[in-house]
């Protein structure tokens, strides 16, 4: 009958009108500035630098200024200057650190290649999307103080990925410790027999083959 479809259509909009007042499943709008958006876990846009602690972000950056990300970055938005000196990292080992680490977010294309290539899990993707600035040059160029965020924050935004990274780092660290312990034992055993050869063994066994995790401070071994 002519008009049936028209009435059905009117019923649909009437249901929407009533439903949008009491049915949250219909009313999907989020009041954005007041209610922060619930981003999916895999959401990512700009990189940030992971530090081990929140209290001393500059002292515990995982970054060792190896500059791989700087070289790999397709739009060349990363700028790194190595430090002249070395500072102990989270595990106490002396490391070069980035004296300058800057990312120009006006140039960054959010490709995540810096994250893919980093052997130290030092750079990860952030979820901060509201980075509008009134100064397009200075305001969008983030320095290392602005980029550094604690590991706890990483756990907060990407829990699955962060847990996996932490487990891997812990496993590598354990493996290195084990290796160092074995090396120390191996060193101790021949030392009893031939003390003269003791000077050679550390150079052969001490450096971890994977550069990803610097080995923890060598266990105090008896000389």
């Amino acid at each position: 009958m002519l008009g049936k479809g028209l009435l059905q259509g009117l019923a649909v909009t009437a249901k929407n009108l009533v439903g949008s007042y009491h049915d949250p499943a219909r009313y999907v709008t989020q009041e954005y500035p007041e209610v922060p958006p619930k981003l999916p876990e895999a959401y990512r846009n700009f990189p940030f630098l992971v530090s081990e602690t929140a209290d001393d972000p500059m002292g515990t950056l995982r970054c060792v200024a190896c500059q791989i990300c700087e070289k790999e970055c397709p739009p060349q938005c990363i700028y790194i200057e190595k430090s002249k000196d070395k500072k102990p990292d989270a595990t106490g080992k002396p490391q070069i650190y980035p004296a300058v680490f800057a990312i120009d977010t006006a140039v960054c294309m959010s490709c995540q290649i810096c994250v893919e290539v980093c052997p130290f899990d030092a750079i990860k993707m952030d979820q901060e999307f509201a980075i509008a600035a009134t100064d397009r040059f200075g305001g969008l160029l983030l320095n290392r103080e602005q980029l550094a965020k604690p590991n706890a924050y990483y756990h907060q935004i990407h829990p699955t990925e962060a847990a996996e990274v932490d487990a891997r780092l812990a496993a590598e660290r354990r493996a290195a410790e084990e290796k160092a312990r074995l090396a120390a034992a191996a060193k101790a055993a021949p030392k009893a027999a031939a003390p003269a050869s003791a000077a050679m063994s550390p150079t052969r066994t001490a450096p971890a083959p994977t550069a990803a995790v610097p080995p923890p401070a060598p266990p105090p071994s008896s000389p």
């Binding site: 909009t13 929407n16 009108l17 949008s20 007042y21 219909r26 999907v28 709008t29």
Partner: peptide, 9 residues
């Protein structure tokens, strides 16, 4: 009303 009928505020 148009908004509400399209489930917008």
């Amino acid at each position: 009303l148009l908004g509400r009928m399209q489930n917008r505020p």
